[in-house]
Design a protein around this nucleic acid. Sequence first.
DNA 1: CCTAGTGTATTAGCTTACTAGTACACTATA
DNA 2: TATAGTGTACTAGTAAGCTAATACACTAGG
Lengths: 124, 124
Amino acid sequence: MEFDDKIPIYYQIKNYLYHQIVTGELDPGEKLPAVRQLAVDVTANVNTVQRALTEMINEQIIEPQRGKGNFVTIDVDKIKQLKDKLVKEQLTIAYQELHDLQLSDNEILEELRKFMKNRGVENE
Amino acid sequence: MEFDDKIPIYYQIKNYLYHQIVTGELDPGEKLPAVRQLAVDVTANVNTVQRALTEMINEQIIEPQRGKGNFVTIDVDKIKQLKDKLVKEQLTIAYQELHDLQLSDNEILEELRKFMKNRGVENE
DNA sequence: CCTAGTGTATTAGCTTACTAGTACACTATA
DNA sequence: TATAGTGTACTAGTAAGCTAATACACTAGG
């Protein structure tokens, strides 16, 4: 897994797992890979992974069962709330940044449409 | 100035100055505040500010004149390119994040419109 | 020439994040 | 009961970022 060296790894792992859960690649109640396996998967240290997991446990997104593993919460509302939170956070950041660059609401929408239209063209 | 403790301060200072330049709060050719003054302004250490400036000098966004100060480039094209780059970077990040959360193009646009509409309502 | 205001360089110490290694507690199963 | 697989805790060491303090080089102006 590739990391942005401007952001703590444990934070990026957390975000990675958030996505797995929100998108259903990890279902409610499903067991996560073992910490040691996760560490291999994302190419990070066990302690770093554990730090990410501990925060998610505190947030009650996952539930640990000693000796068994970590499990995604079965509270689907909680997962829905998580998704909404992530979406809103991203929109807030992007809007503020673009607005600070003096783009009007319409210009932001326009640039986004343009971006979507041209997306992929540069990947060739 | 408030910093996000997940991102290096020098990086956030750089971004702050980018915005000053792109939005014209700092005109082409204009002298930046002295390093020591900037450090006070953004509540950071001189060395941290200097690190941000050094990177911007390497990018030729600002030009240093020993004993005089640092000056915004007079190359307006360069500034325009900077703005385009910042806009594009932000769009890329936001789009990818939202897309990863399984929002379609239309849903992203819809959520953004909704966000713009409700913006400010929660600030009361 | 002197002084104040600039950028620039260097050193030292602190904190956080990360890694590595080890150890322990619990669970399931052969 | 023994063993393998799990989460969890702890210590130690390294690297990066930030701060603080000092020093030096250059410029402008009295």
